[in-house]
Nucleic acid binder design. Structure first.
Lengths: 241, 241
DNA sequence: ACGCATTTGTTCGTATGTATC
DNA sequence: CGATACATACGAACAAATGCG
């Protein structure tokens, strides 16, 4: 079903995570991989480019592609990842409590964030996230109901993204996140176990569909001592002329 | 000097930022761009892929490539960018005060972070960053002296990265950043105008050279109300099999 | 210092698949 | 259905960096 280069990308990740190559060592050359997978160089290069962009390898001209220490780089937190995927990865007991679920008309603030008029209803979802018995994240999300017509409590207890992608068959395209720190609000105190902290880390998120339309605005509010964001970045190519 | 696709990438950015295309509109098709720049489709596609990855456009199969609202997406903060580049971009009066500059033997903590032994000297640089008259960022950086032999006060007052790339001709490859929030330390109180805040946002950074060797470990400590981090992410391709 | 083999980087060409309109 | 536009895949050639003898 998938493109060859994507399936090779996943196969290589599997090998890397299995420890088939030691950290700092070279992976087979493009020529060898071509033969192993019986594909063209173009296809292998696309797979390797994905590995490079996602921080698995570092390519050096004339030398080869080297495995990076993904454990040390504390992967992956950059990018779009849902709370459910995250809790699966960290392997800790996590629980989601749906505090509010309602379809309503948008306030001025939400109209501005979602770029809609007052004739477009929205779904408002507020969920507290419990890890190791403490409520440390408060997620407030607003969905454009033109794209998500119906939401239920049971969907919200699982992964809304799962529902959007696999049931509604909408394709998430990209997202913008903004991280700031704010004084905590009454809602934070009401829904979170703040443990004395008077500030929260706020991650504002705008999620767009494949075709560029704005699906969701969300605020993820974290207790400061439990927040961590990891980013992997490559140096942007410079102009030499 | 540069590769064609990189120079076309920069030319297209220039056009986009000049407002040659309106937000939400299509840019010329790959076929047209091929003719305009007189290059192959492969070259154009590489340029467009870079634009897409850096959040300038959104490509939709069968439709075209659409301009994203880069102003709204609040560019660019993701990725590697030095304080000097940043202050140029935001266009505010910014000043750097070099508080500490010394070559010394590494502590145990720094040895672990930089993955060196106690025979490798390090450069320690502490700089306060003043914006609009207030010291709001404290940068503590440690460089492996095997790569950076000499540092001077005047270099530190400008951009150390400039010096590393343009004078030492070392190529920065990639970096890992980690964002956390911590209680402020004595140093924070000593060097920053904290304005009553008792927490700081800490960005831990590991900067690697082209060949994968670790050049720098740094802590960038920010007053919480003045901190903002923006991230642009694309949905990672899923397995469909 | 030099040439040669290896490896990745860039560019071109061509063909076919798939989504949109 | 046909035209357009982007996606995937293969092949080929040369450039540039590296390592070795």
């Amino acid at each position: 079903m998938n493109a060859k280069y994507i399936s090779i990308y996943h196969k290589l990740i599997e090998q890397i995570e299995k420890g088939a190559f030691t950290v700092g060592s070279k992976i087979p050359s493009e020529k060898l991989l071509m033969e192993q997978f019986d594909v063209s160089r173009d296809t292998i290069r696309k797979s390797l480019q994905m590995l490079e962009q996602n921080g698995y390898i570092n390519k050096v001209k004339g030398k080869g592609s080297f495995i990076l220490d993904t454990a040390k780089l504390n992967f992956p937190v950059t990018g779009l990842i849902s709370f459910k995927e995250l809790s699966n990865q960290i392997g800790r007991e996590a629980e989601t409590i749906v505090e509010i679920l309602e379809k309503k008309w948008p306030s001025k603030f939400i109209r501005e964030q979602l770029e809609i008029d007052d004739q477009t209803a929205i779904w408002k979802v507020v969920r507290a996230r419990k890890i190791d018995g403490k409520k440390i994240i408060l997620d407030k999300e607003y969905y454009n109901s033109s794209y998500v017509e119906k939401l239920s409590r049971s969907i919200c207890e699982g992964s809304i993204f799962d529902y959007i992608e696999n049931t509604l068959h909408l394709n998430i395209g990209f997202a913008k996140k903004e991280i700031v720190v704010q004084a905590c609000t009454e809602d934070d105190q009401k829904y979170l176990d703040l443990d004395g902290y008077d500030m929260v880390v706020v991650v504002n998120t705008f999620v767009y569909l494949d075709d560029g339309s704005l699906l969701q605005y969300g605020q993820s509010r974290h207790r400061p001592d439990k927040f961590k964001f990891v980013d992997f970045a490559r140096r942007i190519q410079q102009v030499n002329e």
